[in-house]
Nucleic acid binder design. Structure first.
Length: 212
DNA sequence: GCGGAGATGCTCT
DNA sequence: GAGCATCTCCGCC
């Protein structure tokens, strides 16, 4: 069953491992305008109640972050400074860990995505968590609390591209909160232009960092 | 091209 | 009213 596959992928192993495994997977959105999709190239792990930088730190639970407490594969959409962010809840129900998707290499509907980004081009279309949601045209929380692969948003877990190398670093934008601030829970495809903050000279413009 | 300041809107206090 | 898992623009290379 599809639901079982989803739960198997998004639980039963450390969240950092799941986050690395999601790199290279295709995220698709069946939008009112047509199919938009891209390959996930950057993501961060948030480890729930233990993690002082996480929304669910100390068991914090509010209407806004309720999705983190859902079944593995629950979509968590929230806003930050007016930007929409896309997370997937991982680990079993009531264990509020999650993955933030931060970078997407466009595949289907690139022209539409550029329009959604008001004429931005190249890697600027989707090299950040707020930017990729703009590119997909998702500017509401309508899909919050719904499941991946049960509606217009899906992740193909059976196919994907293989990174040559995965780089690990500290998470971006987290305010200083003790030991967790510098914890190595950001993962990205080395050299891929759609990784947030990737400098031009570090980009691999031939393979984009993929083996296949 | 790159880094930093300022704008930004939503959520909980 | 503060805090924030960000974006954009504008200087200065």
């Amino acid at each position: 069953m599809k639901t079982d596959e989803l739960k198997t992928f998004f639980s039963g192993r450390p969240t950092a491992e799941i986050t690395k495994a999601i790199l290279g997977k295709r995220l698709s959105y069946q939008s009112p305008q047509g199919l938009l999709s891209g390959i996930i190239v950057e993501a961060e792990a948030y480890l729930g109640q233990e993690d002082s930088t996480a929304h669910a730190f100390n068991g914090r639970r509010t209407p806004a972050n309720e999705a983190l407490y859902g079944e593995p594969g629950t979509i968590y959409i929230y806003t930050l400074r007016g930007q929409y962010m896309f997370d997937v809840a991982v680990q079993e129900k009531d264990n509020p860990q999650g993955i933030l998707v931060r970078g997407l290499e466009p595949v289907d509907g690139v022209t539409l995505m550029a329009e959604n980004r008001h004429g931005k081009t190249g890697s600027d279309i989707s090299n950040g968590p707020g930017k990729l949601m703009q590119a997909l045209g998702i500017q509401s929380k309508a899909l919050n609390l719904t499941m991946v692969n049960a509606g217009p948003l899906s992740i193909d877990l059976d196919h994907g591209r293989q990174p040559k190398e995965i780089i690990t670093s500290a998470r971006v934008g987290v305010s200083k909160r003790g030991d967790w601030t510098e914890a190595p829970y950001r993962f990205y495809v080395a050299g891929n232009p759609y990784v947030s903050g990737m400098r031009k000279r570090d980009m691999d413009l031939d393979s984009h960092g993929w083996l296949n």
